[in-house]
Design a protein around this nucleic acid. Structure first.
Length: 517
RNA sequence: GCUCCGGUGGUGUAGUCCGGUCAAGCAUUCCGGCCUUUCGAGUCGGAGAUCCCGGGUUCGAAUCCCGGCCGGAGCACCA
């Protein structure tokens, strides 16, 4: 039965067991994200992605991005991009990264409906801070942070906490205009000093930063902390569903206190786990250290898991989307295997990727006793013969011709073994070593099968162009590729037969990035 | 130490809320068959999980309850 064609197999199935085909269809249906909770509570579904532009996006960042985008699309809602660039001192934003992130989103196919930068919104945060101070729901604390910590671990109020609002408003002005200096004062949100989790007690909301901000310079000296600006913005921007890493779980609890003071309803929360990739480094700080040491040349080094790097390796945006949907919005940490990612990507590029020969580390192969002329018509794509062929015509001199084959194949050859030069002819190995000698055997590929021959790729001696492929470990595979490769375009995905799928990175001289087998 | 959150084959995931149709589906991986101008892709078949452990509730638990173990996150005037 296996020897029947696929069509025949289907026909028989349809005739005799149509129900089998039915269930198959159901199983192969694309997986989708689970529905969102409490959608009806909101005017529209509004999600946001809120990165700090202090480093480029990586595969882990793509997880919440894809969820936000998918849900926005699913419910005909809005996706909001918000740069959280409020820490010029500790996590200083990098100007060019703002653009990198936008590019990455565009590449991922995300539609951004609204766009904000927190560094443009300081006035808004100040306004809310003042209201909280007036209402006695926040206070300006001038305690040393270590002294404050001692108090709150004992569940005790600091001396500032119960001072009247007027004092705090005065202190607030001193934060904004001096004389308070960095570290002298901080605005705290009142929570519950008895809360069992110390991390939730009277958390800091705004502090003085004296350094310069890449976008605002020294225009502002009081900057909000994450929990304050994020909470305010999520409300101001009417975010309905917050999707973020589960490391923010405690922050959610902190922010609920602020929403309580304000009388706001807290949005729906979806916490997602950390996403790891078995190959490819995702940590921003580890990458940055590696860059400084010179271990990596750039943020798109093939060893890294940044979106830039994955893109350069030929990973398709649909692949990332499919993988994320496969993983789903769950709070568990997942470690993806590269095999899984590669498998999805292969499915996505297989039909577009034309085939070419790339002879890595070329070695000579001399063939004698060739009877007549030998020619090869190699399909650009086995499933799409209409795309044409790569044609080679060998013109033997006294029955002899020379080829280049890869060193790896040459090393595996054994004397008197039959080897098939794909699409061209079968040869019998006569002499192995640094240069291979062989004798013409036959031309038909059936003959090769019958003899259990290895099928190898080749190039006529003198043909082809110098080519290199950047491998996943950043090493380079050097060799010669078919001349036709110089007609390709940058970003084309092709398959070097028996080598793997690669992305064309540069045409002249020809270089590519290895994606996967 | 304190506070949260998780724990289904090597890996990712379905099912867990509303217990039975689940000795557990899908994908990946590995092995074999077929096919093929590719050891590729495709296709067919196979391998691989006592659903973290121990109790309990129940006619019946991956699913509910309790205890334990393991893993992760947070406890910054970072995001």
């Amino acid at each position: 039965m296996n020897s029947w064609t696929l069509e025949r197999q289907k026909e028989v199935l349809e005739e005799r067991w149509p129900e089998l085909l039915e269930t198959r269809k159901v199983k192969e249906e694309k997986k989708t994200l689970p529905p969102l909770n409490n959608v009806e509570k909101y005017r529209e579904v509004r999600t946001r992605f809120a990165p700090n532009p202090d480093g480029p996006l990586h595969l882990g960042s793509a997880e919440p991005i894809i969820f936000c985008d998918e849900y926005a699309k699913m419910y005909d809602g809005k996706f909001i991009l918000r740069f959280e660039d409020t820490s010029p001192d500790v996590k200083s934003p990098i100007l060019e990264v703002y653009d990198w992130i936008k590019e990455d989103l565009k590449w991922l196919g995300v539609v951004v409906h609204e766009f904000y930068m927190q560094s443009d919104r300081l006035e808004i945060y100040y306004g809310h801070a003042e209201r909280l101070l007036e209402k006695g729901q926040a206070y300006v604390c001038t305690c040393e942070s270590s002294a404050f910590k001692e108090l709150y671990t004992e569940k005790k109020a600091c001396p500032c906490r119960d001072l009247p609002p007027e004092v705090h408003l005065d202190r607030w002005k001193m934060m904004l205009n001096g004389p308070y200096r960095k570290g002298d004062a901080v605005v705290r949100i009142k929570t519950d000093l008895d809360h069992p989790n110390p991390a939730l007690r009277d958390w800091p909301a705004l502090r003085i930063v004296e350094g310069s901000h890449p976008r605002q310079g020294t225009k502002y000296r009081v900057w909000p902390l994450y929990n304050f600006s994020c909470a305010i913005d999520d409300h101001e921007m009417e975010i309905s569903h917050i999707i973020r890493g589960k490391e923010h779980e405690v922050n959610t609890h902190r922010q609920r206190y602020l929403y309580g003071h304000m009388g706001w309803d807290y949005p729906e929360i979806i916490n997602v786990g950390r996403l790891g990739l078995e190959a490819g480094i995702l940590s921003k700080s580890v990458i940055r250290a590696g860059l400084e040491e010179g271990l990596y040349k750039s943020w798109d080094d093939p060893r890294l898991g940044t979106l830039q790097a994955l893109r350069r390796r030929g990973l398709q945006p649909e692949t990332i989307r499919e993988i994320m949907i496969q993983v789903g919005p769950k709070p568990i940490n997942a470690t993806l295997s590269w095999a899984q990612v590669a498998s999805v990507n292969r499915r996505n590029i297989e039909s577009q990727a034309d085939r070419y020969f790339f002879v890595r580390d070329p070695v000579n192969l001399d063939v004698v006793d060739i009877t007549g002329e030998a020619s090869a018509k190699l399909l650009l794509h086995p499933d799409h013969p209409e795309r044409g062929t790569r044609d080679y015509s060998i013109d033997p001199k006294n029955g002899a011709a020379s080829f280049k084959i890869s060193k790896e194949d040459a090393e595996k050859m054994e004397k008197s073994g039959i080897v098939r030069l794909m699409g061209l002819m079968n040869v019998e190995v006569v002499e192995t070593g640094s240069s291979i000698k062989a004798r013409y055997h036959s031309s038909d590929h059936e003959e090769a099968r019958a003899n259990g021959a290895t099928f190898i790729h080749w190039l006529p001696d003198g043909e082809g162009v110098e080519a290199s492929v950047v491998m996943p470990d950043a090493s380079k595979a050097n060799g010669i590729a078919e001349t036709a490769c110089t007609d390709l375009k940058m970003d084309d995905m092709i398959q070097f037969e028996r080598f793997g799928f690669v992305r064309v990175d540069n045409v002249k001289p020809f270089s590519a990035y290895f994606a996967h087998r």
